[in-house]
């Protein structure tokens, strides 16, 4: 029982990380049809700069952590908005080229991060409470899992609220539904593109700081390794669906944890098998719109 609870909560924590990456990917794809390979780099740069700031403030206090998270989100948002503005926008409606540009950016930035921060992981110090455990139903659960889950839920609620109750949210939702129509009504969708990129980047940057707490270190490859699972999550959840991404994040991460524990560390393979199964039964994903398989 205690093992079960531990695996479940750890899975939820990991799912929270996946969601923070996948939410941005899914929104960006839904609105613009861009598969963003550079999303992992937004996460990594958010994590690195967030921790640089927190280290200069004070090591291991709560407010340094909050500063790291805010800075990480801000840096992620800026990096993403800049990417959209300088690279993606020039290739408007040429999806393959857009993908290629983000691939190039991902390769170049990971190499640059390695150059600046080295190839070895940088270990981070977070508040002592996060490293301790809490006992729930006999399971000793690391406290950082709760932080991850709480913040991911907060991000989900914030994004959903933003999409539901603001004017920009309305434009974005309408744009996902039918971009041509929105443009025809005289609304500049391109500004919404930058906003969506910035939101996705902010979630990824925050995810970067949280990922470094989860793993205990930052490395130049932390983003690209999470990105692959985020891709799987977005396909399983249905491309462009935020709710689908949330559900699939949890499912994928929990499955991964259980397979890792009970099936001899085969978590990564189990996830790919799940992807194959979903494709066979339901190619458009759990909550994907009909005909959005392209």
């Amino acid at each position: 029982m205690s093992t079960l609870v531990l695996l479940l909560v750890t899975g939820l924590g990991l799912g929270a990380l996946y969601f923070l990456v996948a939410s941005g990917l899914s929104l960006i794809y839904g609105l613009m049809g861009v598969l963003n390979f550079a999303h992992g780099s937004f996460l990594t740069v958010g994590a690195f700069i967030g921790w640089e700031v927190s280290r200069r403030l004070s090591d291991g206090s709560w407010w340094a952590l909050v500063a790291a998270m805010l800075v990480g989100a801000l840096v992620g948002a800026l990096a993403a908005a800049a990417t959209e503005f300088f690279l993606i926008r020039r290739l408007y409606n040429r999806h393959i080229e857009q993908v290629l540009v983000t691939v190039g950016l991902a390769l170049a930035t990971v190499a640059l991060f390695e150059g600046i921060w080295g190839t070895d992981p940088t270990y981070v110090t977070s508040p002592a409470w996060l490293a301790q455990t809490t006992e729930i139903l006999g399971a000793r659960i690391p406290n950082n899992r709760f932080l991850l889950i709480a913040l991911a839920v907060l991000v989900l609620v914030t994004i959903v609220g933003f999409l539901r109750f603001t004017r920009y949210g309305l434009i974005i939702r309408a744009g996902v539904e039918n971009r041509t129509m929105v443009t025809a009504l005289g609304i500049d969708v391109r500004r919404a593109f930058t906003v969506v990129f910035a939101i996705g980047g902010a979630a990824a940057g925050l995810g970067g700081v949280l990922a470094s707490i989860y793993y205990g270190y930052v490395s130049a490859h932390i983003g690209s390794s999470l990105l692959i699972f985020a891709f799987i999550v977005t396909v399983i959840g249905g491309l462009g669906s935020l709710g689908g991404a949330a559900i699939a994040s949890v499912l994928v991460a929990v499955l991964q944890q259980f397979a890792n524990f009970y099936l001899g560390g085969t978590g990564d393979l189990a996830v790919v098998l799940a992807l194959a199964a979903v494709l066979l039964v339901r190619p458009r994903g759990l909550l994907g719109a009909k005909g959005s398989t392209a």
Binding site: G33, L35, I232, V235, L239, P283, A294
Partner: peptide, 10 residues
């Protein structure tokens, strides 16, 4: 079974 961007991800 999927095409385009989904195919790339899969």
């Amino acid at each position: 079974r999927v095409t385009g961007i989904s195919f790339a991800m899969v």
